[in-house]
Design a binder for these strands. Structure first.
Lengths: 193, 193
DNA sequence: GAAAACATGTAACCGGTTACATGATTCT
DNA sequence: AGAATCATGTAACCGGTTACATGTTTTC
């Protein structure tokens, strides 16, 4: 159900096509939420039926058209309601840590390779999020700027700092995962010596 | 697909019934992996068909029977193969951080309540994992002891330290989430003053 | 003119959730 | 005798993944 609200969050800034939203997920916000186009298009249709968004055909080039969605008042209410509702914390299902608990079953070579993958994965995320923070601070974030334009002066600081707060959490997470995997590598080294 | 391997991990220690496995998920290992009974029983059936486990009916009380599953050689191979394979890192889908990025949409009261829920959730997990570490260190972990009994002396340290390593990572994760949410609470306080 | 990007879908499948259903055993 | 626990399932549903399919526009 969160896809719906991730889409509403983006559409609360400005109208977009399904493809625009897909690209957003692949770039900045995508690092918090992701969905393939095959999930986005049908969801937008459903949201239109539910009255949360409205799609209108707009011309695209000489012959083409595309469907641009804008959020409705009901969509704004739904998003705000979701934002005020508590979210449910589902039970832990953590593949890397499950595997780590049984790492003696892996060969040292494979264990090292997997820990390095873990480091590589979270290093890439870390860089992306650091870049996001940099863009927030330097005022280069297009989407944030668009949001701030529509935000009363008094609330702009608030909006910016919450966005920054979210990314800071993700940065610390990534750093922690990297350090954890590095500890694992050292542990394997010690055990094998 | 990980449920299958989480079950094999447990069955590699000793034969168990579906209900035993369910209880394991609800307690210690459950904090790394969880599955409801409605998912476990059918999965065990499939694993039996695939030759990874074998179920045998054993008497239970005067009239009842229960099905106890034990891992097969093919199951051991499958588990070891999975342990040596790299796992795929799927795209981030992080509800708490998604909401945090748009926290200005929530009322301060609700934002505070949600951050406190976040703290409560991760504090509970933290305590459980600290307890798990304590049990590993004190030799009270029944499942680990059972595993160590079947482990050659030379590999016992390895097995114990990897298990500890996994929980240490989870503990750091939990602490980080708690600190992050506390920063969020301070941020709201500052903004509202 | 070709390639890359823009644009929009359908369909089969899969892992996981929730609800429903039932009965035996053990403990108090 | 009743409650808690042990035991085992089915079925509907839902969110998400992967594969397939197609056509337009823009850029080089």
């Amino acid at each position: 159900m969160s896809l719906r609200y991730a889409l509403l969050a983006l559409l609360s800034v400005e109208p977009m096509t399904g493809y625009d939203l897909y690209k957003q997920f692949e770039s900045t916000v995508g690092h918090v939420w992701y969905a393939p186009d095959s999930q986005i298009y049908p969801e937008l249709r459903k949201m239109d039926q539910d009255g949360l968004v409205e799609g209108e055909m707009v011309p695209w080039g000489p012959r083409g058209t595309k469907r641009r969605y804008h959020i409705t008042d009901a969509g704004v209410v739904a998003f705000r309601t979701w934002m005020n509702d508590d979210l449910e914390y589902s039970r832990a299902r953590d593949r890397p840590h499950l595997k780590a608990a049984y790492l003696e079953w892996a060969t040292p070579t494979s264990a090292i390779r997997q820990l390095n993958s873990h480091i590589a994965h979270h290093t890439a995320e870390l860089h992306q999020w650091e870049e996001n923070i940099r863009e927030i601070d330097s005022g280069e974030s297009v989407l944030l700027n668009r949001r701030l334009e529509q935000t009363p002066e008094a609330d702009r600081k608030r909006t910016t700092l919450f966005k920054r707060f979210a990314y800071e959490g993700l940065i610390t997470q990534a750093r922690q995962e990297i350090e954890w995997a590095q500890r694992g590598l050292r542990l394997i080294e010690e055990l094998d010596s």
